[in-house]
């Protein structure tokens, strides 16, 4: 019998969600998996990728009614008999953390952080976390008004990074640029806006998955070679950096992290000091890179949740390149009609 895994974040757009990468990794695993896409919009590309996503459903927005969200999952579950949900979007994690007990009763398993873990990795608590794991955190201030922004940029200096509570980060060279980004991010993602000191260096990422007991079930590190204007990884190379891996494992152990994560750091050019930039509480959009190098984290997560044997090694080759590219699919308007009118493919 097929294992049914529902995956969100199938918006493989210029600010890509991790869902299609997760589905691709699951389809290449040694499990027999039926993948269900949970989309928020009929134009999410994953809806049309029937080579890796067997069926998609439109979900109500997570910011809306909790009951409507649960009812939709119950409906999908009644048809699909979902075994596991892999949540791949920051903005929906709070509702999943909230309804996880309900899902458990339905027989649906998830490996996601607790509310306490989620709060600890908050961008506004990075300093505490950095101290715990023995790395640095760039100086930052939280802003909810233009006056805060002026005070913060005076304090942090220019250039600085202006970042949203969930997504987006821009480098501002002066106060007018900072104000522009402040409004742009606030309109899209709300408050607080974070002003962070700009540090010159290279950006690195480590991804992994914590079992909730202080252990990781595999980690994978990269150097970002090219990033987009939205700050998303476009090309990357796998690396073996013990200092980074050690810091990552301290995070997993210190927080007893549960679920996928992306540990974003910057290594300062002049000092080689490690600065923690963010801990994202889910797999990133490039999660397939790790799977392609033998560390199939979505597969391991599903196996862990279903009490199957899973590997925990982090044995991969350094020097593997990830080349992201754009692509087009040709579909019929009827496909759009189907998802738009019925809410499913």
């Amino acid at each position: 019998m097929k294992i049914v895994v529902a995956v969100s974040g199938i918006n493989a757009v210029d600010n890509p969600g991790p869902g299609t990468g997760i589905c691709k990794a699951l389809k290449e695993s040694d499990l027999d998996i039926r993948t269900i896409g949970l989309a928020y919009d009929a134009m999410e590309p994953g809806v049309y990728m029937d080579n890796i996503i067997d069926k998609s459903y439109i979900m109500p927005y997570p910011s809306g009614s909790r009951e409507a969200f649960i009812e939709r999952i119950k409906h999908i579950h009644s048809v699909e008999k979902i075994d596991v949900i892999i949540s791949a979007l920051d903005a929906e994690l709070p509702i999943y953390m909230d309804i996880e007990p309900v899902l458990q009763e339905l027989g649906i398993k998830m490996l996601i952080p607790t509310k306490e873990m989620f709060k600890t990795r908050d961008k506004l608590r990075l300093k505490e976390l950095a101290e715990t794991i023995g790395v640095k955190a760039p100086e930052y201030r939280s802003c909810t008004s233009i006056r805060d922004l002026h005070d913060s940029t005076e304090n942090v200096g220019f250039p600085c990074m202006v970042k949203g509570p969930f997504y987006e980060a821009f480098k501002a060279n002066n106060i007018s640029e900072a104000e522009g980004y402040f409004h742009k991010i606030a309109m899209a993602w709300g408050y607080p806006i974070i002003v962070q000191k700009f540090i010159t260096g290279d950006e690195y990422d480590v991804i992994g998955c914590g079992d909730g007991k202080g252990n990781d079930i595999g980690v994978f590190a990269i150097r970002k070679m090219t990033i987009t204007k939205l700050g998303k990884v476009w090309n990357a190379v796998s690396i073996k950096n013990e200092k980074l891996i050690e810091a990552t494992r301290k995070v997993v152990k210190g927080l007893s992290w549960r679920g996928g994560f992306e540990f974003e750091v910057l290594v300062e050019s002049s000092s080689q000091d490690i600065y923690v930039l963010e801990i994202n509480p889910r797999f990133p959009a490039w999660v397939y890179f790790a799977a392609g190098c033998g560390i199939n984290l979505p597969e391991r997560m599903v196996k862990l949740l279903l009490n199957k044997e899973y590997e925990t090694n982090s044995n991969y080759d350094s020097g593997k390149l990830m080349i992201r590219f754009t692509n087009e699919m040709i579909k019929d308007i009827k496909d759009f009609e189907q998802i738009s009118t019925t809410g499913e493919t």
Partner: peptide
């Protein structure tokens, strides 16, 4: 360091070449 005969050098710790 991974050093090839062509003179290409890859540092697996930093990812620089």
């Amino acid at each position: 360091l991974a050093i090839s005969d062509s003179g290409f050098i890859f540092d697996p710790v930093t990812g620089h070449s």
